[in-house]
Design a protein around this nucleic acid. Sequence first.
DNA 1: GTTAGTGCAAACCTTTTGCAGCTCT
DNA 2: AGAGCTGCAAAAGGTTTGCACTAAC
Lengths: 158, 158
Amino acid sequence: MPATGIQNSLKERGVRLTRQRRILLDLLDRSGRHLDAESLFQLAKEKDPKLNRVTVYRTLTLLKKGGLVDELDLLHFKGDQHYYESKLKQEHAHVICLRCGKVEEFFGELLQRLRRQVESSLGFRLVTARTELGGYCPDCQSLGAQEAADQDAAVTKA
Amino acid sequence: MPATGIQNSLKERGVRLTRQRRILLDLLDRSGRHLDAESLFQLAKEKDPKLNRVTVYRTLTLLKKGGLVDELDLLHFKGDQHYYESKLKQEHAHVICLRCGKVEEFFGELLQRLRRQVESSLGFRLVTARTELGGYCPDCQSLGAQEAADQDAAVTKA
DNA sequence: GTTAGTGCAAACCTTTTGCAGCTCT
DNA sequence: AGAGCTGCAAAAGGTTTGCACTAAC
């Protein structure tokens, strides 16, 4: 298992590369999906059945503090857990389908422009950006609209 | 206590306006701050000591489902609680100072443009947008940079 | 050999649920 | 009157902490 992406960054900072961390970082680096702590734990357990859930949380905290991962919640579509992704990727927004849960990524110059505009108009120096958009994907659009109306009706009657 | 903002919207939907809801909606409508469930509960308790925390959560759930409030987490600067604000206001981003916790709002045409661009490029129909940016406010900038370096050093040694 | 990191158990914090009784319309 | 709403107690879900043992450097 060669050291990749995040692993190199940590090494440079002199953080100990334990067997457990190697497994977790490797999963974060190469996983396409957005992983939450529990999913990451389940995947890691396949590689090392003794690896503890707590170690997953501690590693994620370390990476957050080090600014190596972004924390998302994908609009809490599936619950209150958080999702993590390597920050090595280019900045992007997450677009979540509120019916099927599909998550798309949106890249584009507008995001950087927004950043710059906020920095200059408010005088902030930004280090983190998170944009999450919710709606209905093409496949779910008609169905989603229907359900939304149903739910609205339900609220009305509630 | 006249029915305002959110209250009118609910009334129109035929949702019962109980004493408790009036108190909660009133607080949400007029509070300048971003309130989390617990703060809202504490404020509400001043007006009705019998009002239960659970009622706060149920009311917030109702408002979320009805699309009357937005849910934020302000990058979890202060913990894992969620914050709520009336959706009546114009769309805006939240900009959080990672040192002092100050929260600024950023309005601007770019946010709508981002929305439109995502809709047309991914074919989504968006109903929710949330942009949270973290960094250092003008006051904290030098100090914040120092602490960040310290923290980095701490991580390095950790 | 040191000191950081891990595993285990238990605690914690925020939020949700079940149910009996109360209240808004 | 009657469905909807509330309060209370208890549980659930996700995450953090204390401590003794282990392993990376």
